[in-house]
Nucleic acid binder design. Sequence first.
DNA 1: ATAATGTCTAACAAAATTGTCAAACAAAGG
DNA 2: CCTTTGTTTGACAATTTTGTTAGACATTAT
Lengths: 198, 198
Amino acid sequence: MATRDNKTEQHIIDTAMRVFFSEGRLNATTQDIADAAGVNRTLIHYYFRSRDQLFDAVFECARLTALAESNNILSEPIPFRKKIEKFVESFLNRLKTYPYLEMSITTAFNEMKEEKDAAFMNGRSRMKEFLKEIQHEMDKGNIRKTKPVHFMINLFSLLVYPFIVRPLNMQLFGLTEQEYEKIVNERKKVIMDLIFGQ
Amino acid sequence: MATRDNKTEQHIIDTAMRVFFSEGRLNATTQDIADAAGVNRTLIHYYFRSRDQLFDAVFECARLTALAESNNILSEPIPFRKKIEKFVESFLNRLKTYPYLEMSITTAFNEMKEEKDAAFMNGRSRMKEFLKEIQHEMDKGNIRKTKPVHFMINLFSLLVYPFIVRPLNMQLFGLTEQEYEKIVNERKKVIMDLIFGQ
DNA sequence: ATAATGTCTAACAAAATTGTCAAACAAAGG
DNA sequence: CCTTTGTTTGACAATTTTGTTAGACATTAT
């Protein structure tokens, strides 16, 4: 009896993650993904039945990746500034691997046929509680006063955007690959300075 | 002799702009676009020959839209802060119509076959000169000191990102359409406060 | 060895998308 | 009215992408 192993299945998911969220090619064909994974395209159907179900599997993976990273840190019992610093660091780290993750999820949202829609992103986020914590820090005068939601939106914006428009920015600012890489590596300090008012 | 008019042609471009950059459905089919425009799909081929060339026409339109808006303002001879304020305002305004423009351009970059590549975005940007102006303001101590490129990246990030992840943010923060709309309308003040240190 | 089970592949079928063409139609000039 | 020119359409062809199936192959238990 051949022992059931899911290493090919996982390898296909990993590759699809890479194609979708690292390279940003959200409409890659099953053939593209099979090629990237170095497997026969039929295997995608063998393991996932259809392209849609591969998508589901990959996006489930993405959801876990995106949630795990933030939720844990946001609920750690450490000082606020330290917490944000860890969050920024971990987020930037993930962005280096999957720069297009948020963008892909949004795009996928847009193209969904309304069926499962909000089925995604139901993994009990710690956001509500953390927004209260932000409010508390504002009351104490430790950070600029505004709606806590804006604080988070600012943070996410400053983190994610430079990654998803990398090619555009390189053009606009006339930067080489290496130069942009350097800029990206400076983001942590820049963001912390901006958020906490230097 | 039937007078040549390009109103259908323009209507198709306008519709494609809407589908791509307002709805964010970058891989809409020619049928999708024809339906949205209320015309026969064959007309797309009559006017643009192929899907690719429709793309080119639309992206040329997008380039002009994106460039015109910023270049003019960035080279106006008005005080720095006033200039940024006008820029933010105009940018937010355009984002309300075409929230997915930057994202689509980036995605298109990613999926390009390397041929024309950088042919896009060659419309002589005023960015170089404006970066110098930013540096000048930093020297005068009017804004936080950092590399001017970061100043611009911060600005673009804070402006664009909330629009392109709108559905995701609504989920994450548990906001309704109306509530998010309200948040978006507060962005101008929030961004100006943050950029100019309250 | 062989039976059983899971993995993989090639060939084929089906569906979706894009592209072509001939002809119908409309407007304007002669 | 007829011609000319530009526009629009439906029917069809080509291409691309997805999905299915039957069988080959590999591993392991009996």
